[in-house]
Amino acid sequence: MAGHTRPLRILLAKLGMDTHTVGVTVIAHALREAGMEVIFTGLKQTPAMVAAAAIQEDVDVVGISTLSAGHTRSLPQLAQLLREAGAGDKLLLAGGVIPEEDRPLLEQAGVDRIFTMGSDTREIVDYLNQWWSRQPGSPD
């Protein structure tokens, strides 16, 4: 497997009006500590804003933090927008308060992995590192 000559790029965003940042802050720091490039788009984002940023930045991963109940609408919308723009290959992660019963809907809509509130950041880092190591690197 060819190695990667650059760090993994991940976009972190908060969708909707929810402004709790503790979780996303902790994760941003942990990913940075793990050598990743974290692009933060700020609060109060719409799915369209996140999709536009993800495409311009051509990130490898899009991570969405949500703590209010709007995720059942906004996450599928985001996944749809990414696919429409030909960016469906990006890994789409969601984290925060997401009830178990919403999982099937979100997974079916294109969310690749859900990390619920209080997930160990090391688990997230491991998951991303493993995923990244399976992605084709650049030829030397």
Binding site: G16, M17, K44, S68, R73
Partner: peptide, 20 residues
């Protein structure tokens, strides 16, 4: 959240958050 952020319930920005 729509109220505390200064938006009406029918603002497209806040869809899905009303009364939550």
């Amino acid at each position: 959240l729509p109220t505390t952020n200064g938006y009406d319930s029918d603002d497209p920005l806040v869809a899905g958050e009303v009364g939550r």
